[in-house]
Amino acid sequence: MSAITRDEVAHLARLSRLALTDDELDHYATQLDAIIESVAKVAEVAAEDVPPSSHALPLTNVFRADEVRQSLTPDQALGGAPAVEDDRFRVPRILGEEA
């Protein structure tokens, strides 16, 4: 049985904002299936009572003082943008929630 179906790969592509072709979906389905089967080995390490590590080192409480620093100039901020209008980033229409 495969670990991941083509439909699931299509769902992952949607979640990841990747417009994949049908051929790509087939290709990735096969490869991801093999990879997932292989990485499932992590389950072999009996680790029920082991705390997970999200970080490499156990640092805590790293903060900065609430001080203002120089921002970018509008040119620096907007200079690399694909489209700009009125000092704002111009983006295609947003299929969002009605505001």
């Binding site: 990485v39 992590v42 389950a43 390490v45 082991v50 705390p51 997970p52 590590s53």
Partner: peptide, 14 residues
Amino acid sequence: AYYGQAQKVRTVIA
């Protein structure tokens, strides 16, 4: 099963 378990493995390796 995946990310969570991998993080535990991380602890074990450390």
